[in-house]
Write a protein that binds this DNA or RNA. Structure first.
Length: 268
DNA sequence: CCCGGAACCTGAAGGC
DNA sequence: TGCCTTCAGGTTCCGG
């Protein structure tokens, strides 16, 4: 499931393949992948434009085009962007570049979204800060948590608070910070918030170094998997020993999301 | 505004 | 073997 480290990896590996290239054709085997504008307009406005920059904000991928529009891609659960990978499955959209290269948007569960918009603010204004933003300090993080009564796990998943953390990295972050996922956010001490902030940056950085976690359908643009999941302490490790103390990892639902944790290292 | 729950989606996995 | 149910989780919507 693409979260910040996966989208960052896709951005890094895709950029050298597509920047400066012209979109010579767009094919939509599943036009419902396009949220806006209408799919025929989407195709018409994309054709002939050149991709100028590729950026990431939270879990969104942002392609800036020569016609001053932005192609926004959200991969949601099972989306992947495959560059010149023969034999892809579940393809919902194909972008032909320079009449030679093929960028395919594959998405088994069909929850991903493509949109073509005039201003990135339409997407980014609603998001909380990116964890790697220069001014995203522990103090700023604490400010954004203030007044929240929900479990910290649920708040970490709220993209209005911080943009980019998803279910599996939230579990890893809380394990590293030794905080129980159901802990009420407004009972966290300043030091505990600092620990979560610090863990967030460490966990996400390590996952980017591992080129993302292939726990489900995540693939890099060349079709290869990432390795970040091999470093997981708790996420998707139900019944396996905690790397810190050996206690068997448990799982409990938080807002209907599976949450993996160590009941010894993360006390409520 | 904040919170929690349901809905969207479909292949995989497990039960019988 | 095969049908059926449940699960996965990022985002959005809705009711309280």
């Amino acid at each position: 499931m693409p979260e910040l480290p996966e989208v960052e990896t896709i951005k890094n590996e895709l950029a050298p393949c597509i920047i400066g290239k012209r979109i010579t054709d767009v094919v939509l085997p599943d036009s419902t992948a396009v949220k806006e504008p209408a799919s025929d307009v989407f195709i018409r406005k994309l054709k002939g434009t050149t991709i100028e920059t590729v950026r990431r904000r939270g879990k969104y991928l942002i392609l800036q085009l020569s016609n001053h529009k932005f192609l926004i891609i959200h991969l949601r659960m099972t989306g992947a962007l495959l560059f010149n990978c023969p034999g892809e499955r579940y393809v919902r959209a194909v972008f032909h570049l320079n009449g030679r290269d093929r960028l395919a948007f594959a998405d088994r569960r069909r929850l991903g979204v493509l949109r073509l918009i005039d201003s990135v603010g339409e997407i980014t204004d609603k998001l909380g800060p990116d964890p790697f933003a220069r001014d995203f300090t522990a103090a700023k993080f604490a400010e954004r948590l203030r007044g929240r009564k929900a479990p910290i796990k649920a708040v970490l998943l709220d993209q209005h608070v911080v943009a980019g953390v998803g279910n599996m990295y939230a579990d890893e972050i809380l394990f590293m910070a030794k905080i129980h996922p159901l802990r009420k956010t407004n009972t966290l001490t300043a030091n505990e918030i600092k620990a979560i902030h610090h863990a967030m940056l460490r966990v996400l950085r390590a996952a980017i170094a591992g080129k993302g976690a292939s726990v489900d359908t995540y693939k890099r643009p060349d079709g290869n998997q990432g390795t970040a999941h091999t470093e997981f302490a708790v996420a998707h490790r139900l019944g396996k020993p905690c790397p810190g103390c050996g206690t068997l990892i448990q799982r409990l639902p938080v807002r209907n999301r599976g949450s993996y944790y160590c009941s010894h290292c993360q006390k409520l």
